[in-house]
Simulated assay, not measured.
Amino acid sequence: MILSDPTSPDFDAFLSLRYLQNGCNGFDGASCGRLALIYFDGAGDVDKDWSAASNFSQRGCAEQDRDGCDVAEAVFADSSSPYFDAEKALRYRSINCGFGRWQSCMHQARILYNLGDYRNAEQLAVHACGSGGEDRKSICDLAGSLKSRRIKIERAEAAQRAQQQAAQQAAQANKRAIVTSFLKSRDYDGAIYAAIYNSRTVDDAEYALTAAINAGAMGSVYIDNLHVLDYWFPSGSLNRAVNTEISRRSRGNDCGIFNCTNMPGASSRRWAAQNGGSRNSYRRSSSSGSSASPSVLSSADARKQVREKYRSAHCTMNNNANRNVC
Rank of each mutant, 00 (worst) to 15 (best):
N253K: 07
N253Q: 08
N253S: 10
D254H: 05
D254A: 07
D254Y: 04
C255T: 14
C255R: 11
C255P: 03
C255D: 03
G256Q: 05
I257Q: 04
F258W: 12
F258G: 03
N259F: 12
N259G: 08
N259V: 05
N259I: 04
C260I: 06
C260P: 14
C260N: 05
C260W: 09
T261K: 14
T261L: 13
N262G: 15
N262C: 10
M263K: 15
M263H: 05
P264K: 04
P264H: 06
P264T: 05
G265M: 11
S267P: 00
S267K: 13
S267T: 07
S267D: 08
S268W: 11
S268R: 15
R269I: 13
R269T: 10
R269K: 13
R270Y: 04
R270Q: 09
R270I: 11
W271C: 05
W271G: 00
A272Q: 15
A272W: 06
A273E: 10
Q274Y: 00
Q274A: 07
Q274T: 00
Q274C: 00
N275L: 06
N275F: 07
N275G: 01
G276P: 06
G277H: 11
R279I: 07
R279W: 10
N280Q: 09
S281T: 13
S281E: 13
Y282K: 06
Y282R: 10
R284E: 09
R284S: 07
S285A: 14
S285E: 10
S286F: 01
S287P: 12
S288E: 08
S288W: 07
G289Q: 12
G289H: 12
G289C: 13
S290H: 03
S291D: 03
S291Y: 06
A292H: 06
A292F: 06
A292S: 13
S293L: 14
S293G: 06
S293R: 15
P294A: 10
P294S: 08
P294F: 02
S295M: 03
S295C: 02
L297V: 06
L297D: 04
L297R: 11
S298Y: 00
S298H: 00
S298W: 00
